[in-house]
Amino acid sequence: MSSHAAPSLSTLMVKASAQEKLSPAQQRFNDLLERIERLSVQIQRLQAWSDKHRYAHIQSLRESVQLAQTHRKSLLLFVHERLQTADLTDRQQGMARGMVRGLIDHLAPMADPQVQSLADVYVSEEDTQEEAQEQAEAAQRLRERIEEALGQPIEKPDQYQTPEEMMQAGMRQWQRQQEADEQRKAAKRAARKAQKQAQKKCAAAEKGEVPAALMRALDAKSAIRTLFRQLASALHPDREPDETERLRKTALMSEVNAAYEKNDLTTLLRLQMQVTQGAPQNKAGAARMADDKLIAMSVLLKEQVSALQDDLDELQSRLSQELCVPVRADADEATMTQALQRIQADQRHSADSLAADLRRIQNDTELKRWLKEQWQLAKATSA
């Protein structure tokens, strides 16, 4: 690694003089550097926040979920046993069987032999048929609302027997509509663009001109190649007699090679500034570059902005899924940390509530009262 701290990108920006304002090319160059700096800082801060909280948070959630599943299994076995022995009315037995089926649904991912054996008992063909009928009726009601929103019938509606399947079918059909509309619009835009480009090419060919976009791309490659060669020449380790300095240059040259492979212009500019520190007469800073060179370099900087934005989006999406809370680089870190703490507390509370229920229903009077409360709660939730 270099013995000098890497300079901030702000030191690479073109500075306006008292006599002249920045040109549009200089402003664009500065804007891209600023965006690269901002995105890089956001990624670093978000990764640091993740490193600080991620492991402990995931571990806490895993422990709470495992404890809750243990309590659910104990509840399942207890209610099943009381169904065989307790003095329950037909209505209470129905409530208890419904409670057992609900617990089995929660425990299904465990693939536990005891849970599976009870599932074979309680999830009977009659229950399955009744549930399928309810699902089909709900799917039909949802189909009517979706068709009204789409303005056309759902394709092959008989294939979808549950509200979830009907909703997914409606979403796919809506997406196809949107994609078809967008494709038609894109085709029109592409045709107009192709026509304009063809006209420009014809005009350029008549004048013997090279397209400006191609020139900028070629200039960008040329600029970064020139910068690489200057650095390679200045840092050549074999030309350095001092052992310490040779090691420093070897490390810097390794960074130069890696940056050149990735077309990482900002790193090369930073390294150039480190190499030329203390030798102002050798500096070829952005302020001295002609606008055409800045425009060419901006092509590379724009690519870096796009790559960094993709990296940030991927990091935010991955952490949101892993941590079960919305994660945004522009959000307040304390607020996100509080969200982690809330979901941890909710999971612990869920496990504690199940344990409290299990202690409570040890006598038949409380069991009956609890079954009624759970039935009413399930009814209110589904309403």
Rank of each mutant, 00 (worst) to 15 (best):
E155T: 15
P241A: 01
Q347N: 04
A351D: 02
D332R: 11
S3P: 00
E303C: 10
G98A: 10
Q177I: 14
Q19P: 02
R318A: 10
L269G: 01
Q161M: 05
L76M: 13
S233W: 05
Q66T: 14
S74W: 01
L75F: 03
W370I: 01
L12Q: 09
W49A: 09
L61T: 03
S350E: 15
E366T: 03
I146K: 05
V65C: 04
W174N: 08
S254V: 12
M1A: 13
A217K: 14
T335W: 06
Q84C: 02
R360L: 11
T226D: 00
R288Y: 07
A296C: 02
S233C: 01
D330S: 15
R72Y: 07
Q374W: 04
S298V: 05
T11R: 14
I361M: 07
A329G: 12
K193L: 08
S233F: 04
L39V: 00
L358D: 06
D87S: 07
D332C: 06
A86P: 00
R369M: 05
K185S: 13
T337I: 07
A351Y: 03
L76P: 09
D158M: 04
A380F: 09
Q362M: 07
E314Q: 15
L247C: 05
A234H: 07
K293T: 15
E125S: 15
Q92I: 05
T267N: 08
L32R: 12
E63P: 02
L265W: 06
L76N: 12
S233P: 00
K185E: 15
M13C: 09
Q277M: 09
L61V: 03
R225K: 11
R318D: 13
T335P: 02
P24N: 00
E165R: 04
H80F: 11
A356F: 02
E63S: 13
K379W: 05
S8M: 00
Q140W: 13
R192D: 10
D87L: 09
A138R: 15
S17Y: 12
A191D: 06
R38S: 03
M215C: 10
H57D: 08
T85A: 06
D51W: 10
Y55P: 00
R35D: 04
L77Q: 05
L300G: 01
